[in-house]
């Protein structure tokens, strides 16, 4: 009799533990599901705030870019160029003009403001060859 089995008692124990666990688990799941919209909303709000911050940063950069473009234009004004030439570089108007014809066109001026200009295609970066690139990783002098 010492080795009597109690299959019923084991089965009862399984059901008596499982049902509350399932119920508690389900409650947690429902609770978590209820939190999900909150998490989503929080995420959206955070992302929105981040976008707004980036927009603000972009606006700030654009303002500074405008200021720099105006500054460049002021530095390139004819009045300033002449003043610098006369006062700082001590240049004087030429007494004799020599005309020299060359068949190479001059560089086009960089147009500013640049906001409506077409984007220039990015020139490919000059890359070292593969072995030089690998060698550059080594701690060599």
């Amino acid at each position: 009799m010492a080795t009597q089995h109690r299959p019923f008692a084991q089965g009862r124990s399984w059901t008596s533990f499982t049902l509350p666990v399932i119920l508690i688990g389900a409650s947690f799941a429902v609770g978590l599901a209820a939190l999900l919209p909150l998490v989503q909303s929080s995420g959206v709000t955070t992302t929105g705030g981040h976008i707004r911050q980036l927009e603000q940063e972009r606006s700030t950069w654009q303002t500074q870019l405008q200021e720099q473009e105006v500054r460049v234009a002021q530095l390139g004004s004819l009045e300033r160029i002449e003043r610098e030439a006369r006062e700082r570089l001590k240049m004087v108007p030429p007494k004799e003009v020599h005309h020299i014809s060359v068949d190479v066109p001059g560089p086009a001026p960089n147009r500013i403001p640049s906001r409506f200009l077409e984007d220039q295609p990015a020139s490919p970066l000059a890359r070292d060859n593969l072995w030089e690139e690998i060698a550059s990783w080594l701690p060599l002098p």
């Binding site: 405008q66 473009e69 105006v70 147009r111």
Partner: peptide
């Protein structure tokens, strides 16, 4: 938005706007 600029025939600004 920003008012447009008046440029000379070579693109040099004669009147421009800044914030």
């Amino acid at each position: 938005d920003r008012r447009g600029a008046l440029l000379d025939r070579n693109g040099y600004p004669l009147a421009a706007s800044e914030d």
